[in-house]
Design a protein around this nucleic acid. Structure first.
Lengths: 193, 193
DNA sequence: GTCTATAAATGGATAGAC
DNA sequence: GTCTATCCATTTATAGAC
């Protein structure tokens, strides 16, 4: 079926983007992982950039769905808890090998993403919702109010692709859960005592 | 002169590694930036990996020289201040466009670096010295002693290439000094109030 | 829509003259 | 050691049969 096939393609792209990034990922690899011919890929997506953009949009939509669930299941009176839950979720996704590494500033993927309405709209939506929680958490005194909200927002985005998770995983000393706990502590409580 | 020329090559490689990473950097670009023919590059360095490794070694040596200066000019009684100074320095280097972005797990550069004695020795030296400061800071109660020292070490390494600096710089809202102050606060004091 | 085969371009590396 | 010219593998993308 058409949609199932496209979903398999996007899943493979998502995994490869997480593993090696856009530049190092080749369309041949994608085709091999999906188990179809490369020419068939191009019947579904017109370019490598569109292929990658589809994967980025899907991750963004997963994030939005997660925010939906949080809004439904958690109290608006504790915005800090929500922000922590989001940070935890992004780390779980990264440790599962499903968080695409972000493209460098001048990547062709960057240009494709900035003109992709689905992606830009999704990013705006996530930023708006997180931004509201950030200002709420600053207002109720649970989050450092001296930091500009945009600095907090960018910090959370950066933690989603923090290489420290991979470093610690590579050490083989800790479980995924222990790694997440440590990084959450450094993120929200800092390194200081 | 030979050494001056090689230094110019390594500087160009360093800048390009910081700007776009190892995979996206091409040897043609390096040659163009230095202003010599590509074949001439290969008289100095046998491969693209060796070219990049030379730049990584130079950055590592800059870091070691900075640690030397810190040991000479600061008090061993305040190891936390030393760690903060190191973090600040790495951020300054990054904002200056001189911090190479780290190669992905399975990059050919990774393999080249692990067999490069100069690089491995330099990394060991830096890790040992930072490790001593970390345990000292935990012992004197200024650093969270619940975090394993290796987690703190990796966190400091990760902050050296933290994309949040580029995000905030791209916003155009803050000076480099303000950006560094904010990221230092989030790193050592955390996001919480 | 899937395939095989191939085009077109790029990029790492080398030959050989000077 | 520098250059021009070239090799050769890889990679993005397409043609055209089924």
């Amino acid at each position: 079926m058409h949609l199932a096939r496209e979903d398999a393609i996007v899943s493979a792209v998502n995994r490869l983007l997480a593993e090696k990034g856009f530049e190092a990922m080749t369309v041949d690899e994608v085709a091999a992982e999906v188990g179809i011919a490369k020419a068939s890929l191009y019947k579904h997506f017109p370019s490598k950039e569109d292929l990658a953009a589809a994967a980025m949009v899907r991750v963004m939509n997963r994030a939005r769905a997660f925010l939906d669930g949080l809004e439904a299941s958690s109290s608006p009176d504790d915005p800090l808890a929500r922000l922590k839950a989001v940070a935890r979720w992004t780390m779980e996704v990264q440790l599962a090998g499903e968080m695409p590494s972000l493209p460098s500033e001048n990547s062709t993927l960057r240009a494709a993403l900035t003109t992709n309405k689905d992606y830009v709209d999704g990013l705006m939506d996530v930023s708006d919702r997180l931004g509201a929680w950030i200002t709420a958490a600053q207002a109720n005194g649970s989050l450092n109010a001296q930091l500009p909200p945009i600095a907090v927002l960018y910090t959370l985005y950066a933690r989603a692709c923090d290489p420290v998770l991979g470093f610690l995983k590579g050490s083989g000393l800790y479980t995924d859960e222990q790694i997440i706990e440590m990084v959450l502590i450094t993120c929200f409580d800092g390194l200081k005592k």
